[in-house]
Computed example of a mutant assay.
Amino acid sequence: MNNIVPFFLLIFLTACTTSSSLYNFDYPLTNQTAESQYMDLSVKIPQDWSAVEDNECYCIDILLINKEKTASIKFVPINVDSLVLSNDDKLEKILTFSKKFREIALRDKFNQIDGDEFFTIGSLKCAAYKYLNEEKIIVRVIVFSFNKKYFESIATPVSYESIAKDKLSRLFNVQNSTLLSISSR
């Protein structure tokens, strides 16, 4: 009996500290890359997706759109003052910053879906959350650090009708897969 308690405690602690995502990262990627024009960042383009030039605001580093034009994945830099970030829990602070930004943008209509997700893809430590946007569409945001810069990867269906629940999981799988392919330009 004395040996069983530590065994179950070990299993419980392992389950609570898991660093795997809720979604896979096995979506096929092409050999083509999408490169940021502003930062030292590139990703492989997913199969049946393409890279698109940013609009005139220059606020998106990389924009990927699926061939059906029903979903997009954006890579956006997060610009925060380094004094705001202490040495502890930087990823959690960036996650909080990202959510606060959405709360302000959506005013009092910010509605987070599920809890926060903390995981590692390759050597990239990530934190994610999902929320309902203005059109009540589920959007997933992943924050991460690459080359001492912080970014958001934002996966968005175009409309509620365009993404069924199984396709939404696939979109988040594509999002994770692109993160696995991140490299310097």
Rank of each mutant, 00 (worst) to 15 (best):
Y23M: 00
T70H: 02
T18I: 11
N3S: 13
S82A: 15
V43Y: 09
W49H: 10
E56S: 13
K90D: 04
F25V: 11
A71M: 09
P6E: 07
I62N: 00
S50W: 05
S50A: 08
I94V: 05
L13V: 06
D89R: 08
M39K: 13
F118H: 06
L63I: 00
A34G: 12
R102F: 12
A105D: 13
E103K: 12
F12S: 15
Q37K: 15
L85F: 04
W49T: 12
D54G: 06
D108K: 15
I73R: 01
N31I: 09
C16A: 11
N55H: 05
I65S: 00
L83I: 12
F7C: 08
N66M: 04
L63V: 00
D81K: 13
K69N: 04
D81R: 12
D54Q: 06
N66V: 05
N66Q: 04
V5N: 03
T14A: 15
F25C: 11
T18H: 07
L106R: 01
T18K: 07
K109I: 04
K109Q: 15
N87G: 14
W49A: 12
I65M: 03
I11S: 05
Q47L: 15
K90M: 08
V52D: 08
L106W: 00
S98C: 06
E117P: 00
E68P: 00
C16I: 13
P46R: 06
S86I: 07
E92T: 02
L13G: 07
F8A: 10
V80R: 03
C59G: 12
Y58M: 03
I45A: 05
F97H: 14
Y58P: 00
G122N: 07
A71Y: 02
K90Y: 01
G115I: 06
T17M: 14
L29R: 10
N79A: 11
F97R: 10
E35K: 09
Q32R: 09
Q47F: 15
S72A: 08
K90T: 07
I11K: 02
A51K: 08
A105P: 02
M39V: 12
I104G: 06
E117G: 01
D116C: 01
T96H: 10
T30I: 01
K90W: 01
N79Q: 10
V80W: 04
L91N: 00
K74H: 07
C16K: 08
C16R: 09
N79P: 00
S72F: 02
T96E: 10
R107G: 04
S42R: 13
N55G: 12
F101D: 15
N79G: 07
V5Q: 05
L83W: 13
F101P: 00
F110V: 04
Y38M: 11
M39E: 14
S21Q: 06
S42Y: 07
F101K: 12
D108Y: 11
T18Q: 10
F75S: 08
C59T: 11
S20L: 06
L29M: 11
T14F: 12
K100M: 06
E56F: 07
P6L: 09
N31D: 15
P6R: 01
E103V: 03
S98Y: 10
Q112S: 04
